[in-house]
Design a binder for these strands. Structure first.
Length: 320
DNA sequence: AAGGGCCTCAACCGCTTGTGC
DNA sequence: GGCACAAGCGGTTGAGGCCCT
């Protein structure tokens, strides 16, 4: 809700610099014009949309208004505890990739989630002694200093971000470094996760070395395997990489979110019921290091943050 | 009731990548 | 390959509402 008359210190304003373009809060009349036009003509061509719709706004402003407020699929109202839980888990997995997080939470926008994180969740984590950027304890004495060097700052704005009409998180190259900071993972980069398993991001593939599994989108399932070579990909696997499906990653992410954010608890549960660690149920967990999910104390801490909200749901899951 | 400080969140900014020519 | 434009992203801002004294 900026003052329409305010300017940002004389810096260039690429899309709203034209004299006569309105800024600031939208009026109901403008909302009606925009929504009516998009309902008739559809989204897209934002640059020329304002003129065609009869709005004195820049295209960027129109797009933002539609995406964050007017779209029928946008859910209004408070973030539910389940959604909050999901945001926490996803942020731990993805870092400040608000659009990716929003993509996993129906009806919520990246802006809304970003705001909610900054105003609620980050403070909540801080109050519990957890660094909201790294999801690790703020007090370094509680960390294993030998294996957890000081946290790095989050990825800078200058870090290149992939963009596509239907962005695939895999192609985004997700990494959580050994310090826990989310960072951009470039193709062929190798990372060392906290449990000393090595993950390689290669052409859309996250592969856990030294662990038990890898995620190969093109294969439409998770592979279970032992130690792999530094290259780690067969010819067939290489070919598979060319047909990475977003829905497959979706399934993978779902399994991470739903089951594997808490490897210790999961393992304890498995042991309690006497199942083998090599059983299929552990496949996604073993794949977790490929996305920088460290087994250990941080997961336990995370669980403490959201355990209260999860208790009822987990009870249901166990019944199932 | 007044007013000062804090909080929330819609909107904007600056940057990036993708695409077409 | 270079350029311009379109679209999308994360970070930041600040008006308005709320709360406290």
């Amino acid at each position: 809700m900026r003052n329409p008359s305010s300017s940002s210190g004389g810096t260039k304003t690429p899309c709203c610099s034209k004299v006569g373009l309105k800024r600031g809060p939208w009026t109901p009349e403008e909302d009606e014009l925009l929504a009516g036009y998009i309902n008739r003509e559809g989204e897209g061509r934002w640059r020329t949309l304002p003129k065609r719709a009869g709005l004195l706004r820049c295209g960027k402003s129109c797009r933002l208004r539609w995406m964050n407020y007017l779209r029928p699929s946008v859910k209004r109202g408070q973030i539910a505890p389940d959604e909050e839980d999901l945001i926490l888990r996803l942020h731990r997995l993805l870092g400040n990739r608000w659009s990716l997080i929003a993509g996993r939470i129906p009806g919520r926008t990246d802006n809304e989630i970003k705001n909610y994180w900054n105003t609620h969740l980050s403070k909540k984590l801080i109050s519990q002694g957890i660094d909201p950027r790294t999801h690790k304890p703020l007090n370094p004495e509680t960390q294993n200093s030998s294996s957890n060097p000081p946290a790095k700052p989050p990825p800078s704005k200058a870090a290149p971000r992939p963009r596509s009409p239907n962005p695939s998180p895999i192609s985004s190259g997700l990494e959580e470094t050994s310090s826990g900071s989310p960072a951009i993972l470039k193709e062929n980069d190798q990372i060392q996760s906290a449990d000393n398993t090595e993950a390689v991001y290669q052409n859309g593939t996250a592969t856990a070395h030294g662990g038990e599994a890898s995620y190969l989108p093109g294969t439409q399932h998770y592979h279970v395997m032992g130690l792999r070579s530094s290259h780690g990909l067969s010819n067939e696997e290489e070919e598979d990489l060319n047909c990475c499906g977003d829905d497959v990653f979706s399934s993978f992410l779902n399994s991470l979110i739903n089951e594997e954010a808490f490897p210790i608890q999961h393992q304890l549960q498995q042991q309690a019921v006497g199942s083998s660690p090599d059983s299929d149920s552990l496949i996604p967990m073993a794949a977790a290091p490929a996305f920088g999910i460290a087994a250990g104390w941080d997961s336990a801490i995370m669980s403490s943050v959201i355990n209260q909200e999860n208790n009822s749901r987990r009870a249901n899951e166990q019944v199932e």
